[in-house]
Write a protein that binds this DNA or RNA. Sequence first.
DNA 1: GCTTGACCTCAAGTTAGCTTGAGATTGCAC
DNA 2: GTGCAATCTCAAGCTAACTTGAGGTCAAGC
Lengths: 145, 145
Amino acid sequence: MNCNDLLPIGELARRTGLAVSAIRFYEDKRLIEPIRTSGNQRRFLRSDIRRLSFILIAQRLGLGLTEIERELRKLPQGRTPNAGDWHAISGTIRKRIDAQIAQLEKVREDLDGCIGCGCLSLNKCALFNAGDKWGESGSGPRVLR
Amino acid sequence: MNCNDLLPIGELARRTGLAVSAIRFYEDKRLIEPIRTSGNQRRFLRSDIRRLSFILIAQRLGLGLTEIERELRKLPQGRTPNAGDWHAISGTIRKRIDAQIAQLEKVREDLDGCIGCGCLSLNKCALFNAGDKWGESGSGPRVLR
DNA sequence: GCTTGACCTCAAGTTAGCTTGAGATTGCAC
DNA sequence: GTGCAATCTCAAGCTAACTTGAGGTCAAGC
Protein backbone atom coordinates (compact mmCIF):
# COMPACT_ATOMS: atom_id res chain seq x y z
CA MET A 1 0.00 0.00 0.00
CA ASN A 2 1.68 3.20 -1.02
CA CYS A 3 0.96 6.72 0.20
CA ASN A 4 -1.75 7.18 -2.42
CA ASP A 5 -3.58 4.13 -1.17
CA LEU A 6 -3.50 2.37 -4.49
CA LEU A 7 -3.67 -1.38 -4.55
CA PRO A 8 -1.89 -3.69 -6.99
CA ILE A 9 -4.01 -6.44 -8.47
CA GLY A 10 -2.72 -9.18 -6.19
CA GLU A 11 -3.66 -7.23 -3.11
CA LEU A 12 -7.16 -6.67 -4.45
CA ALA A 13 -7.47 -10.34 -5.25
CA ARG A 14 -6.43 -11.26 -1.73
CA ARG A 15 -8.94 -8.88 -0.23
CA THR A 16 -11.92 -9.91 -2.32
CA GLY A 17 -11.23 -13.61 -2.64
CA LEU A 18 -11.30 -13.32 -6.41
CA ALA A 19 -8.63 -14.71 -8.70
CA VAL A 20 -6.29 -12.24 -10.33
CA SER A 21 -7.39 -13.55 -13.71
CA ALA A 22 -11.00 -12.86 -12.83
CA ILE A 23 -10.30 -9.24 -11.98
CA ARG A 24 -8.45 -8.78 -15.26
CA PHE A 25 -11.39 -10.37 -16.99
CA TYR A 26 -13.76 -7.90 -15.35
CA GLU A 27 -11.62 -5.04 -16.53
CA ASP A 28 -11.89 -6.42 -20.02
CA LYS A 29 -15.65 -6.34 -19.65
CA ARG A 30 -15.45 -2.76 -18.34
CA LEU A 31 -16.77 -3.58 -14.90
CA ILE A 32 -13.78 -1.97 -13.30
CA GLU A 33 -11.25 0.51 -14.64
CA PRO A 34 -7.93 0.68 -12.82
CA ILE A 35 -5.30 3.28 -13.56
CA ARG A 36 -1.83 2.25 -14.71
CA THR A 37 1.64 2.90 -13.38
CA SER A 38 4.33 4.16 -15.71
CA GLY A 39 5.37 0.54 -16.01
CA ASN A 40 1.86 -0.45 -17.18
CA GLN A 41 0.81 -2.21 -14.02
CA ARG A 42 -2.76 -1.87 -12.72
CA ARG A 43 -3.44 0.15 -9.58
CA PHE A 44 -6.85 0.04 -7.95
CA LEU A 45 -8.64 2.40 -5.65
CA ARG A 46 -9.74 1.21 -2.26
CA SER A 47 -13.33 1.75 -3.29
CA ASP A 48 -12.86 -0.87 -5.97
CA ILE A 49 -13.07 -3.50 -3.26
CA ARG A 50 -16.62 -2.38 -2.75
CA ARG A 51 -17.21 -2.42 -6.47
CA LEU A 52 -16.10 -6.03 -6.69
CA SER A 53 -18.21 -6.99 -3.71
CA PHE A 54 -21.15 -5.48 -5.47
CA ILE A 55 -20.38 -7.55 -8.54
CA LEU A 56 -20.21 -10.73 -6.48
CA ILE A 57 -23.52 -10.08 -4.82
CA ALA A 58 -25.25 -9.15 -8.04
CA GLN A 59 -23.92 -12.28 -9.67
CA ARG A 60 -25.27 -14.41 -6.91
CA LEU A 61 -28.66 -12.94 -7.59
CA GLY A 62 -28.46 -14.10 -11.15
CA LEU A 63 -27.43 -10.90 -12.91
CA GLY A 64 -25.09 -11.40 -15.84
CA LEU A 65 -21.92 -9.37 -16.16
CA THR A 66 -23.49 -7.26 -18.88
CA GLU A 67 -26.37 -6.29 -16.66
CA ILE A 68 -24.02 -5.60 -13.79
CA GLU A 69 -21.98 -3.32 -15.99
CA ARG A 70 -25.14 -1.44 -16.86
CA GLU A 71 -25.86 -0.98 -13.16
CA LEU A 72 -22.35 0.11 -12.31
CA ARG A 73 -22.43 2.71 -15.04
CA LYS A 74 -24.95 4.54 -12.87
CA LEU A 75 -22.24 5.30 -10.37
CA PRO A 76 -20.64 8.73 -10.71
CA GLN A 77 -17.75 8.96 -13.12
CA GLY A 78 -14.55 10.54 -11.95
CA ARG A 79 -15.12 10.66 -8.24
CA THR A 80 -15.12 7.95 -5.61
CA PRO A 81 -18.69 6.78 -4.99
CA ASN A 82 -20.07 7.68 -1.59
CA ALA A 83 -22.72 6.12 0.60
CA GLY A 84 -25.59 7.78 -1.26
CA ASP A 85 -24.34 6.56 -4.62
CA TRP A 86 -24.13 3.01 -3.42
CA HIS A 87 -27.50 3.26 -1.82
CA ALA A 88 -29.08 4.42 -5.05
CA ILE A 89 -27.55 1.71 -7.16
CA SER A 90 -28.37 -1.08 -4.78
CA GLY A 91 -32.06 -0.41 -5.17
CA THR A 92 -32.22 -2.70 -8.18
CA ILE A 93 -30.50 -5.36 -6.16
CA ARG A 94 -32.82 -4.96 -3.23
CA LYS A 95 -35.86 -5.38 -5.45
CA ARG A 96 -34.33 -8.45 -6.97
CA ILE A 97 -33.76 -9.98 -3.57
CA ASP A 98 -37.35 -9.37 -2.53
CA ALA A 99 -38.63 -10.85 -5.76
CA GLN A 100 -36.47 -13.93 -5.37
CA ILE A 101 -37.55 -14.52 -1.81
CA ALA A 102 -41.17 -14.24 -2.87
CA GLN A 103 -40.60 -16.69 -5.70
CA LEU A 104 -38.86 -19.19 -3.48
CA GLU A 105 -41.67 -19.01 -1.00
CA LYS A 106 -44.12 -19.73 -3.76
CA VAL A 107 -42.11 -22.69 -4.97
CA ARG A 108 -41.97 -24.08 -1.45
CA GLU A 109 -45.68 -23.70 -1.12
CA ASP A 110 -46.27 -25.40 -4.45
CA LEU A 111 -43.91 -28.16 -3.50
CA ASP A 112 -45.95 -28.93 -0.41
CA GLY A 113 -49.28 -28.45 -2.09
CA CYS A 114 -48.64 -30.28 -5.31
CA ILE A 115 -45.75 -32.68 -5.55
CA GLY A 116 -46.46 -33.52 -1.95
CA CYS A 117 -50.09 -34.32 -2.53
CA GLY A 118 -49.64 -36.46 -5.58
CA CYS A 119 -52.38 -34.77 -7.53
CA LEU A 120 -52.48 -35.72 -11.14
CA SER A 121 -54.86 -33.07 -12.32
CA LEU A 122 -52.16 -31.33 -14.24
CA ASN A 123 -54.27 -28.43 -15.37
CA LYS A 124 -54.83 -27.36 -11.83
CA CYS A 125 -51.32 -27.95 -10.63
CA ALA A 126 -49.38 -24.81 -9.88
CA LEU A 127 -45.98 -26.42 -10.27
CA PHE A 128 -46.61 -27.74 -13.73
CA ASN A 129 -47.78 -24.42 -14.94
CA ALA A 130 -45.22 -22.38 -13.10
CA GLY A 131 -42.41 -23.32 -15.43
CA ASP A 132 -44.23 -22.52 -18.60
CA LYS A 133 -42.26 -19.51 -19.72
CA TRP A 134 -38.80 -20.70 -18.77
CA GLY A 135 -37.77 -21.64 -22.26
CA GLU A 136 -36.27 -18.72 -24.15
CA SER A 137 -34.77 -18.98 -27.60
CA GLY A 138 -31.21 -19.16 -28.87
CA SER A 139 -28.07 -21.02 -27.91
CA GLY A 140 -26.09 -21.28 -24.72
CA PRO A 141 -26.73 -22.27 -21.13
CA ARG A 142 -30.33 -22.19 -20.00
CA VAL A 143 -29.76 -21.91 -16.29
CA LEU A 144 -30.02 -18.90 -14.04
CA ARG A 145 -33.68 -17.97 -14.53
CA MET B 1 -52.07 -39.82 -27.12
CA ASN B 2 -52.60 -43.48 -27.78
CA CYS B 3 -54.49 -45.96 -25.68
CA ASN B 4 -51.46 -46.74 -23.52
CA ASP B 5 -51.14 -43.12 -22.56
CA LEU B 6 -47.64 -42.83 -23.93
CA LEU B 7 -46.47 -39.45 -25.11
CA PRO B 8 -44.19 -38.78 -28.08
CA ILE B 9 -41.39 -36.32 -27.42
CA GLY B 10 -43.09 -33.37 -29.09
CA GLU B 11 -46.12 -33.75 -26.89
CA LEU B 12 -43.96 -33.83 -23.78
CA ALA B 13 -42.09 -30.76 -24.97
CA ARG B 14 -45.34 -28.92 -25.49
CA ARG B 15 -46.56 -29.84 -22.04
CA THR B 16 -43.45 -28.90 -20.14
CA GLY B 17 -42.34 -25.92 -22.15
CA LEU B 18 -38.98 -27.57 -22.79
CA ALA B 19 -37.38 -27.88 -26.20
CA VAL B 20 -37.36 -31.29 -27.81
CA SER B 21 -33.59 -31.09 -27.98
CA ALA B 22 -33.39 -30.42 -24.25
CA ILE B 23 -35.41 -33.52 -23.44
CA ARG B 24 -33.17 -35.64 -25.65
CA PHE B 25 -30.20 -34.06 -23.89
CA TYR B 26 -31.63 -35.04 -20.52
CA GLU B 27 -32.05 -38.59 -21.71
CA ASP B 28 -28.42 -38.58 -22.70
CA LYS B 29 -27.59 -37.54 -19.15
CA ARG B 30 -29.85 -40.29 -17.80
CA LEU B 31 -32.30 -37.95 -16.15
CA ILE B 32 -35.16 -39.56 -17.97
CA GLU B 33 -35.47 -42.93 -19.67
CA PRO B 34 -38.20 -43.26 -22.26
CA ILE B 35 -39.14 -46.52 -23.90
CA ARG B 36 -38.92 -46.95 -27.66
CA THR B 37 -41.42 -47.92 -30.32
CA SER B 38 -40.51 -50.64 -32.79
CA GLY B 39 -39.52 -47.80 -35.10
CA ASN B 40 -37.09 -46.43 -32.48
CA GLN B 41 -39.10 -43.39 -31.51
CA ARG B 42 -39.22 -42.30 -27.86
CA ARG B 43 -42.41 -42.76 -25.86
CA PHE B 44 -42.77 -41.18 -22.43
CA LEU B 45 -44.94 -41.96 -19.47
CA ARG B 46 -47.31 -39.36 -18.16
CA SER B 47 -45.37 -39.29 -14.92
CA ASP B 48 -42.37 -38.07 -16.86
CA ILE B 49 -44.01 -34.67 -17.00
CA ARG B 50 -43.63 -34.55 -13.27
CA ARG B 51 -40.08 -35.74 -13.54
CA LEU B 52 -39.23 -32.90 -15.88
CA SER B 53 -40.98 -30.40 -13.66
CA PHE B 54 -38.86 -31.61 -10.82
CA ILE B 55 -35.76 -31.10 -12.92
CA LEU B 56 -36.78 -27.55 -13.77
CA ILE B 57 -37.38 -26.64 -10.17
CA ALA B 58 -34.19 -28.22 -8.96
CA GLN B 59 -32.26 -26.38 -11.64
CA ARG B 60 -33.73 -23.10 -10.60
CA LEU B 61 -32.43 -23.76 -7.14
CA GLY B 62 -28.95 -24.11 -8.49
CA LEU B 63 -28.60 -27.90 -8.63
CA GLY B 64 -26.55 -29.17 -11.54
CA LEU B 65 -27.86 -31.91 -13.79
CA THR B 66 -25.49 -34.39 -12.18
CA GLU B 67 -26.85 -33.68 -8.73
CA ILE B 68 -30.39 -33.84 -10.03
CA GLU B 69 -29.71 -37.21 -11.55
CA ARG B 70 -28.42 -38.40 -8.18
CA GLU B 71 -31.65 -37.24 -6.58
CA LEU B 72 -33.85 -38.81 -9.21
CA ARG B 73 -32.10 -42.11 -8.79
CA LYS B 74 -33.77 -42.29 -5.38
CA LEU B 75 -37.11 -42.75 -7.06
CA PRO B 76 -38.27 -46.36 -7.36
CA GLN B 77 -37.11 -48.23 -10.43
CA GLY B 78 -39.65 -50.01 -12.55
CA ARG B 79 -42.84 -48.59 -11.16
CA THR B 80 -44.44 -45.21 -11.56
CA PRO B 81 -43.53 -43.01 -8.60
CA ASN B 82 -46.42 -42.15 -6.31
CA ALA B 83 -47.08 -39.26 -3.96
CA GLY B 84 -44.97 -40.70 -1.17
CA ASP B 85 -41.99 -41.20 -3.46
CA TRP B 86 -42.11 -37.63 -4.64
CA HIS B 87 -42.54 -36.38 -1.15
CA ALA B 88 -39.43 -38.21 0.02
CA ILE B 89 -37.28 -36.98 -2.81
CA SER B 90 -38.36 -33.39 -2.52
CA GLY B 91 -36.96 -33.14 0.98
CA THR B 92 -33.56 -32.15 -0.37
CA ILE B 93 -35.23 -29.50 -2.43
CA ARG B 94 -37.23 -28.15 0.45
CA LYS B 95 -34.11 -27.78 2.58
CA ARG B 96 -32.40 -26.01 -0.24
CA ILE B 97 -35.23 -23.55 -0.58
CA ASP B 98 -35.15 -22.75 3.12
CA ALA B 99 -31.41 -22.26 3.05
CA GLN B 100 -31.64 -19.96 0.06
CA ILE B 101 -34.33 -17.84 1.59
CA ALA B 102 -32.26 -17.48 4.74
CA GLN B 103 -29.23 -16.48 2.71
CA LEU B 104 -31.12 -13.93 0.70
CA GLU B 105 -32.48 -12.41 3.85
CA LYS B 106 -28.99 -12.11 5.19
CA VAL B 107 -27.74 -10.45 2.01
CA ARG B 108 -30.60 -7.98 2.15
CA GLU B 109 -29.79 -7.17 5.72
CA ASP B 110 -26.13 -6.67 4.89
CA LEU B 111 -27.05 -4.51 1.95
CA ASP B 112 -28.98 -2.17 4.18
CA GLY B 113 -26.50 -2.24 7.00
CA CYS B 114 -23.29 -1.95 5.04
CA ILE B 115 -23.39 -0.74 1.47
CA GLY B 116 -26.23 1.49 2.52
CA CYS B 117 -24.37 3.04 5.41
CA GLY B 118 -21.18 3.76 3.56
CA CYS B 119 -18.95 2.35 6.24
CA LEU B 120 -15.39 1.99 5.19
CA SER B 121 -14.20 -0.12 8.07
CA LEU B 122 -13.81 -3.12 5.84
CA ASN B 123 -12.80 -5.52 8.54
CA LYS B 124 -16.09 -5.09 10.27
CA CYS B 125 -18.20 -5.14 7.16
CA ALA B 126 -20.37 -8.19 6.78
CA LEU B 127 -20.71 -7.90 3.03
CA PHE B 128 -17.03 -7.79 2.31
CA ASN B 129 -16.40 -10.84 4.34
CA ALA B 130 -19.48 -12.70 3.19
CA GLY B 131 -18.11 -13.58 -0.21
CA ASP B 132 -14.84 -14.95 1.01
CA LYS B 133 -15.27 -18.59 0.12
CA TRP B 134 -16.95 -18.13 -3.24
CA GLY B 135 -13.90 -18.81 -5.32
CA GLU B 136 -13.41 -22.48 -6.00
CA SER B 137 -10.66 -23.86 -8.21
CA GLY B 138 -10.64 -25.20 -11.77
CA SER B 139 -12.03 -24.06 -15.08
CA GLY B 140 -15.46 -23.18 -16.33
CA PRO B 141 -18.26 -20.85 -15.28
CA ARG B 142 -18.19 -19.63 -11.70
CA VAL B 143 -21.83 -18.70 -11.42
CA LEU B 144 -24.71 -20.75 -10.02
CA ARG B 145 -24.32 -20.43 -6.25
C1' DG C 1 23.82 -5.69 -11.16
C1' DC C 2 21.21 -9.64 -10.29
C1' DT C 3 17.63 -12.32 -8.67
C1' DT C 4 12.92 -13.23 -7.63
C1' DG C 5 8.21 -12.67 -7.39
C1' DA C 6 4.47 -10.00 -8.87
C1' DC C 7 2.77 -8.25 -13.11
C1' DC C 8 1.86 -7.83 -18.19
C1' DT C 9 -0.58 -9.46 -22.86
C1' DC C 10 -2.75 -12.49 -25.86
C1' DA C 11 -4.47 -16.81 -27.48
C1' DA C 12 -6.51 -20.95 -26.49
C1' DG C 13 -8.83 -24.17 -23.32
C1' DT C 14 -12.70 -25.47 -20.02
C1' DT C 15 -17.46 -26.48 -18.22
C1' DA C 16 -22.42 -26.61 -18.20
C1' DG C 17 -26.32 -26.80 -20.65
C1' DC C 18 -28.16 -26.73 -24.52
C1' DT C 19 -29.08 -25.67 -29.89
C1' DT C 20 -28.33 -26.29 -34.77
C1' DG C 21 -27.74 -28.80 -38.93
C1' DA C 22 -27.33 -32.63 -42.03
C1' DG C 23 -29.07 -36.58 -43.71
C1' DA C 24 -32.05 -40.55 -42.90
C1' DT C 25 -36.48 -42.85 -41.06
C1' DT C 26 -41.28 -43.23 -39.18
C1' DG C 27 -45.96 -43.02 -38.89
C1' DC C 28 -50.47 -40.99 -39.33
C1' DA C 29 -53.81 -39.08 -42.73
C1' DC C 30 -55.80 -39.06 -46.91
C1' DG D 1 -49.52 -46.09 -51.39
C1' DT D 2 -48.16 -41.53 -51.01
C1' DG D 3 -47.19 -37.24 -48.70
C1' DC D 4 -45.58 -34.64 -44.98
C1' DA D 5 -44.73 -33.55 -40.38
C1' DA D 6 -42.53 -35.53 -36.55
C1' DT D 7 -38.69 -38.32 -35.24
C1' DC D 8 -34.15 -40.25 -35.26
C1' DT D 9 -28.69 -39.96 -34.71
C1' DC D 10 -24.44 -37.78 -34.49
C1' DA D 11 -21.24 -34.14 -34.76
C1' DA D 12 -20.38 -29.51 -34.22
C1' DG D 13 -21.53 -24.90 -32.48
C1' DC D 14 -22.67 -21.56 -28.92
C1' DT D 15 -22.62 -18.64 -24.54
C1' DA D 16 -21.07 -17.19 -20.05
C1' DA D 17 -17.52 -16.76 -17.11
C1' DC D 18 -13.41 -17.73 -16.32
C1' DT D 19 -8.62 -20.34 -16.23
C1' DT D 20 -4.25 -21.77 -18.17
C1' DG D 21 -0.02 -21.22 -20.57
C1' DA D 22 3.63 -19.12 -23.06
C1' DG D 23 6.75 -15.65 -23.32
C1' DG D 24 8.09 -11.24 -21.68
C1' DT D 25 8.48 -6.96 -18.19
C1' DC D 26 8.80 -4.47 -13.60
C1' DA D 27 10.48 -3.43 -9.13
C1' DA D 28 12.28 -4.17 -4.52
C1' DG D 29 15.94 -6.40 -1.91
C1' DC D 30 20.55 -7.94 -1.44
